[in-house]
């Protein structure tokens, strides 16, 4: 960004330019001392329109993204009570004299003492990890084959991957219920071709959850892989083949290592949201499918325990902070290397 791009504060406008409505308003307001003082101060502080442009989305995100997390953090130390809203205040004035601060660590103690929560955390990580691996194994051959197609076909294939990505998540998960249930289509089909003699119970098991996650998140894996593979310098492969390297070793030695950034981005994009997934374990999983997103939902909507669900959220965030930060670094690095 060159210096010319930086906009001066309105008073710095070159004089030859006819003042717009804001400019003339500014000029007439300069007659008033407080405004002149403020404008002078702002100009002296180096505040420019550039800063105002930055400020708009910045303040929005601070207000509706960062601040809400701080509130969750604060609430996780308060106590549940039957009221609206259902928590006791942390700060309270007693007799208009004393500021009473009540920080409770009961919520966290419960999370560590009741094995349900620990198990839900561990189970979420396990389910998300296995699903991510499965998604990679299924997504890689698809992305790889897409790149091999002619440019025209490639565009259509890309559209076909993007389309489900835009289609309602809920509807796509719902579609699997009709397929997986005991009297569902998959069982009907398997019974008909005689592969099984009695229906498999698939719905409300962990298998259904894996299918649901792989299915829903597959485009998130294919798209970064495809973007990466498409840009790959194919002359490297040609050189290797010319030098007598067979296609399969060439894949393992050249294509795979070079596509690592795509693999990493895809895995993050699947793993992080899958850990906190709610809809899939709720609709496809069984009563013993413990996942932390579902626990949080239940604490909030069924037990109305806002403080405890806040504590669950804080621990979930702590669990994910490392992958999220790594993902961001990775994204920034990829964005800047263009």
């Amino acid at each position: 960004m060159s210096e010319q791009n930086e906009i001066g504060f309105i008073s710095n406008d070159p004089p030859h330019r006819a003042p717009g409505p804001i400019g003339s308003l500014h000029a007439s307001l300069l007659a008033y001392t407080p405004y002149r003082w403020l404008a002078g101060k702002l100009a002296a502080s180096g505040l420019r329109v550039r800063h105002l442009v930055i400020a708009v989305p910045y303040i929005w995100l601070l207000l509706f993204f960062l601040a809400p997390f701080l509130i969750v953090f604060k609430l996780s130390f308060s106590e549940y009570r039957i009221a609206i809203p259902p928590y006791a205040p942390i700060f309270e004035f007693i007799d208009q004299t004393y500021l009473q601060v009540r920080l409770s660590i009961d919520n966290y103690r419960l999370l560590f003492q009741d094995s349900l929560y620990i198990q839900a955390y561990l189970n979420s990580v396990r389910v998300a990890g296995i699903s991510t691996l499965l998604t990679l194994l299924i997504g890689y051959p698809i992305a790889y084959s897409m790149v091999k197609a002619r440019p025209r076909t490639r565009f259509i294939l890309l559209m076909l991957v993007i389309l489900p990505f835009w289609t309602s998540f809920l509807i796509r998960v719902y579609a699997w219920i009709g397929i997986l249930k005991n009297e569902g289509l998959l069982n009907a089909f398997l019974l008909k071709i005689g592969l099984i003699s009695e229906p498999l119970s698939l719905l409300n098991t962990d298998i259904a959850v894996y299918i649901g996650i792989v299915y829903s998140y597959l485009p998130f894996m294919i798209l970064p892989l495809y973007a990466n593979l498409e840009k790959m310098d194919m002359s490297l492969i040609e050189a290797a083949t010319d030098l007598g390297c067979k296609p399969v070793p060439a894949f393992w030695k050249i294509t795979l290592p070079l596509s690592l950034p795509g693999i990493v981005a895809g895995c993050f994009l699947v793993f992080i949201p899958a850990v906190g997934e709610f809809v899939i374990p709720d609709l496809l999983g069984g009563p013993d499918t413990l996942m932390i997103g579902k626990v949080l939902w239940t604490e909030f909507f069924n037990n109305l325990d806002w403080p405890l669900s806040s504590a669950v959220a804080v621990l979930l965030l702590l669990l994910l902070i490392v992958p999220i930060v790594l993902f961001q670094r990775h994204q920034q690095k990829t964005a800047e290397s263009h």
Partner: peptide, 14 residues
């Protein structure tokens, strides 16, 4: 990438 349950809860509390 934030799990939706966290975004939802934090916005509600805000």
């Amino acid at each position: 990438v934030m799990p939706e349950v966290i975004t939802g809860l934090s916005l509600l509390l805000a």
